[in-house]
């Protein structure tokens, strides 16, 4: 904790703001791939503690949106603030933002040559200068939380998909992020493993974590999300509370999307 606030105090340019600083603020963000516009004038504000589900058809820019928030993808135009730090392509600000955000990928991206425990302790030890003993305690704490402390000495390849994804969540939590980004965390899983991962995410939500989650799990969205963000062709087309969005989608595109996904 203290290290992170120190890092912020030393380097990052924090926006002076009197009101509660939003967790994420995007203003007129554009992202291009050659001639293709993957994000088209995206505005988005996420309050601290808010849970957002991002959905939309394939290729609509959901992954791009979420990957711009921790600068894994560079936005071309517009402004992105994460906890008041502007993502302006400066190293120190990118670092500050990445320390505040954790990310979970569709394909887990665990380090296959390291044990579960090593996966969890690497970043705390090398990026936060924690001692091995401290980092192990921390890792075991979060592995217990995702209910796989007994797998700590195994390698990722020896675990089921659901277990791997829970390790990935624990690994991200070991850096004590304030915002968690999920990009289709259950899409690569067999149906019987989806539930265990969603349960883990629900628990995280209940503890007040700020979450942005790309998912097609509409049950999860209904239960957990404060707001649904619907994207199409690089734009945020619609934002509404789940109730509202599912019952009365405003756009034609959202209606056809929901028709396809619900069945």
């Amino acid at each position: 904790m203290s290290e992170r606030s120190m890092a912020r105090a030393e380097g990052a340019t924090v926006q002076p703001q009197l009101r509660e600083v939003p967790a994420v603020r995007m203003e007129a963000v554009y992202k291009h791939y050659g001639d293709f516009t993957a994000l088209n004038e995206v505005d988005l504000k996420v309050a601290k503690g808010e849970k957002i589900v991002v959905c939309g058809p394939s290729g609509s820019g959901k992954s791009t949106l979420i990957r711009c928030i921790n600068h894994i993808e560079k936005h071309d135009e517009g402004l992105i603030y994460v906890n008041g730090v502007e993502l302006d392509h400066q190293r120190k600000n990118i670092d500050a933002v990445r320390r505040d955000t954790g990310m979970v990928f569709q394909s887990f991206n665990l380090f296959p040559h390291m044990t579960v425990l090593e996966n969890c302790t690497l970043a705390p030890m090398t990026a936060n200068g924690m001692s091995e003993a401290e980092a192990k305690d921390l890792a075991m704490h979060f592995l217990t939380k995702v209910r796989i402390p007994d797998q700590a000495e195994k390698f990722p390849g020896q675990l089921s998909g659901g277990q791997q994804q829970r390790v990935a969540i624990a690994r991200a939590l070991c850096m004590r992020p304030k915002i968690m980004l999920f990009d289709e965390p259950t899409s690569a899983l067999d149906p019987e493993m989806v539930k265990e991962v969603l349960e883990t995410m629900k628990k995280l939500a209940e503890e007040g974590m700020t979450m942005l989650c790309v998912t097609h799990e509409m049950g999860f969205a209904r239960e957990v999300a404060d707001r649904i963000v619907f994207m199409n062709e690089g734009r945020v087309v619609e934002q509404a509370a789940p109730e509202e969005f599912f019952k009365h989608p405003k756009s034609e595109r959202a209606r056809t999307f929901l028709d396809q996904i619900i069945h």
């Binding site: 921790n70 600068h71 894994i72 670092d95 990445r98 320390r99 955000t101 954790g102 990310m103 990928f105 394909s107 991206n109 665990l110 380090f111 296959p112 040559h113 690497l122 970043a123 090398t126 990026a127 690994r171 991200a172 850096m175």
Partner: peptide, 25 residues
């Protein structure tokens, strides 16, 4: 590429990413 992305997301430095993540694999 996902391995590098995971390393960035975890705030690993470029050197640690190379030495501990990319090079061994």
């Amino acid at each position: 590429a996902g391995q590098r992305e995971a390393a960035w997301a975890l705030s690993l430095s470029p050197w640690v990413t190379f030495r501990r993540v990319t090079l061994p694999q």
